[in-house]
Design a protein around this nucleic acid. Sequence first.
DNA 1: CTTTGTGAAATCCTTCACAGCG
DNA 2: CGCTGTGAAGGATTTCACAAAG
Lengths: 218, 218
Amino acid sequence: MPSRRVPEATVARLPVYLRALVTAQEHRQRTISSDGLARAAGVNSANVRKDLSYLGSYGIRGVGYHVAELIDEISRVLGLTQDRRVVIVGVGNLGRALARYDGFSQRGFTVAALVDADPNKVGTVVGSLVVQPFSSLARVVAREGISFAILATPASAAQEVADRLVEAGVTAILNFAPAHFDVAEGVHVRKVDLSTELQILSFYEAMGASPTQEAAGG
Amino acid sequence: MPSRRVPEATVARLPVYLRALVTAQEHRQRTISSDGLARAAGVNSANVRKDLSYLGSYGIRGVGYHVAELIDEISRVLGLTQDRRVVIVGVGNLGRALARYDGFSQRGFTVAALVDADPNKVGTVVGSLVVQPFSSLARVVAREGISFAILATPASAAQEVADRLVEAGVTAILNFAPAHFDVAEGVHVRKVDLSTELQILSFYEAMGASPTQEAAGG
DNA sequence: CTTTGTGAAATCCTTCACAGCG
DNA sequence: CGCTGTGAAGGATTTCACAAAG
């Protein structure tokens, strides 16, 4: 029960397990073995067992893990018990699509505000939200109780936007801009770069070589 | 010059270096040190040097690397010299945004076809392309000379779609569906899961713990 | 004097293999 | 017997630290 330190690689797999477990539950499955979970997640079963052992959540020898119990445990460890409010900065093609993406809200992430620097976009409606001017970022973040941001601006604006986000009190940023930026200690950043992923595939295509199943969440 | 085997972790960083190098070149920079590149990419400089050493591309001691030369070298290694043609399967919010995303074409990936199983979407226009029925996937892939696919369907359809893509001759799949699937030997898959990324951030938020800058491209 | 290239050390991660529980 | 939990082995990756090159 008392969870030890969880390695990064394990943390990155927990959401995958969670997804597989929810699917299993929808199929009325009450228990699941490390092997079943491993298959669904595309990893090795010893890896699953070791990962889960970090949570202190114990399975039953000869049986497997209780699906419902594991879902609760992983949700708790991932901090998904509280709803997270998110601002999307930059409502270009990608930002607009993310604003409407229901996968976020399904998993407890509420897109509470949209912000853009372009006066032509301010005031337009995306989904059920009106785009706010970038200049009012701090106010919006405070008013809406936002702690997460999705950064979907051009690369050139990334550092500036990140600075403003941190100033405004945002503590986690999911960065879709193809650029690196620095943030203060304690602010968490993850980067998703869509063309990078295709370029990596391109390498293995060109080589014709092995790595075949690759999660992009390391 | 004779490139040895390139480790996976290095491959995942090459596109990041490439991006930084192109930016440097736009700023009229002729050479760049491992330290400069490391800063721009958000990694350790020894890491940069080791990575580049795998390419056999040599820098100049006391000076650094020629920007233009390195761009060529990395582009070649990543197989970006040839244009890749891509089909997007699933034109929901995400698929449509990806279809219009100009970052792909800027980097040599041409979205050549859109496909969807929903008859209401078939025939609609996204960007400059007409959505084709899923049933004509094989024909479209053959006609358009497509080798890459972006899978942006619901999770429940992922395995089926992947099977059809592989049948049709696609050899690299970028998977946005939150599901794992199996493919034949030699077909390369990378997974991008948007809510997973937020959930990982959520973990570190909840813990208040260290990992601060994290690339999502392992 | 600056900066690369790289052995060696340190760290992290995965997989094996099996004792032991249910 | 089946399946978990985990020590130990094996890989992979990162970082250090420094000799050598320009």
